[in-house]
C-alpha cells in the first residue's frame, strides 16, 4: 500500500509546455491563479476557460490525469458551494423548509466552484509538465534574489531535491520494517485510531535511526565529491530562456491584462 504513493505527478510526454523553462511555468501559473481572482464577470470566466483548455490541449496530458487532482478538494468544494448557496442573502429563488436559495447565492456558488476547480487544474498543469527537479531548479533560480536577505535558497533547493530522491527509499524501508515487525507479531491493522498510532511508534524509531544514518552517509559522499555549498557551483544544464519562453510570457501577460480589463465590461 505504501508503494502506491507517487511523488510529484510528472507526466512524461513531449509537448511545447514540457519544454518551457520551469521559471516561465512558475510565473505563468502565478499570473493565471491571480487572474482568477481579478475578475467577477462572466466574460472573464469564459476567457479563463478558453485559456485553460487551450493550455491543457497544448500540454498533451490526458484530461483524466488533470481531474485526478480534483478528488482531493471535493470536500472543500462541496462545503464552499453549499455555504455560498444557502447563506447568501438576496432575491429568493425557492425555499425548502428553513433553507432558502437565492439567485445571488446560486451565482456566487457557481463562480466559487469554477474558481476552485480552475485553481487546481491550473497548478496541476505545472506539476504534470515539470519534473520535480526542474521545479526545484526553477524555484532556486527565481528566488535567487532572496539570498541578499539571508535566505539560504541554494541549501533549501538542495534539501528539496535530496528529499525527493529519498522519499521512495524511505517508503521502501518503512515497508520492510513493517513486514519484519509483522513477522514478529506486531499488529498495524486492527484497533482504533489511538491503538494504530501507538503501533507506529516501534516503526518510527528504527526508521528515524536509519534516516539519520543515511543522512550521515550521504553528507560524507557529497563532501567526497567536492561539494562545498552553492558558491562556485555550476550547472550541467543551466536554465536558459528560449524563444518559446518569450512567446509564452507575452501570451500570459496579454491574457492577464485582458482578464483585468473584463471588470470594465457590463457583464
Amino acid at each position: 500500500m505504501l508503494r502506491d504513493i507517487t511523488i510529484g505527478q510528472y507526466y512524461p510526454v513531449s509537448s511545447p509546455l514540457h519544454r518551457l523553462d520551469p521559471r516561465t511555468k512558475l510565473a505563468g501559473t502565478m499570473l493565471y491563479l491571480l487572474s482568477l481572482f481579478m475578475t467577477d464577470r462572466l466574460t472573464g470566466y469564459l476567457i479563463a476557460t478558453v485559456f485553460l483548455f487551450t493550455v491543457i490541449r497544448l500540454s498533451r496530458v490526458p484530461f483524466r490525469f488533470m481531474v485526478k487532482g480534483l478528488k482531493a478538494i471535493i470536500l472543500l468544494l462541496a462545503l464552499s458551494v453549499s455555504f455560498n448557496m444557502f447563506l447568501t442573502p438576496g432575491r429568493e429563488l425557492f425555499r425548502l423548509g428553513f433553507i432558502s436559495i437565492t439567485y445571488e447565492g446560486l451565482f456566487t456558488a457557481a463562480f466559487m466552484a469554477i474558481r476552485l476547480v480552475y485553481l487546481v487544474l491550473g497548478s496541476s498543469i505545472m506539476t504534470l509538465t515539470t519534473t520535480p527537479n526542474a521545479l526545484t531548479d526553477g524555484l532556486e533560480k527565481s528566488l535567487g534574489f532572496m539570498k541578499r536577505f539571508g535566505v539560504p535558497v541554494h541549501e533549501i533547493a538542495m534539501m528539496m531535491s535530496i528529499a525527493l530522491r529519498f522519499i521512495p527509499i524511505l517508503v521502501e524501508e518503512t515497508d520492510k520494517i513493517m513486514k519484519a515487525q509483522t513477522a514478529r507479531g506486531a499488529d498495524f491493522e486492527s484497533g482504533g485510531l489511538i491503538k494504530k498510532a501507538r503501533a507506529m511508534v516501534p516503526l518510527l524509531v528504527p526508521l528515524f535511526i536509519s534516516a539519520f544514518r543515511r543522512a550521515l552517509d550521504l553528507s560524507m559522499a557529497m563532501e567526497a565529491r567536492c561539494y562545498h555549498g552553492g558558491e562556485g557551483r555550476t550547472k550541467m544544464k543551466p536554465l536558459r530562456y528560449g524563444k518559446n519562453d518569450r512567446i509564452a510570457y507575452v501570451i500570459v501577460i496579454i491574457y492577464f491584462i485582458v482578464m483585468g480589463s473584463t471588470n470594465l465590461l457590463p457583464f
Partner: peptide, 24 residues
C-alpha cells in the same frame, strides 16, 4: 543508495563536475 544525490543518473554523474565549477 546513500551516495547517489540526484534523481536522474546523468545529473548524479554531473554532481562532482558541477561542484568543481566547470563550464556546462
Amino acid at each position: 543508495d546513500n551516495q547517489i544525490i540526484a534523481n536522474v543518473v546523468e545529473e548524479d554523474v554531473a554532481f562532482g563536475p558541477e561542484n568543481l565549477g566547470l563550464q556546462s
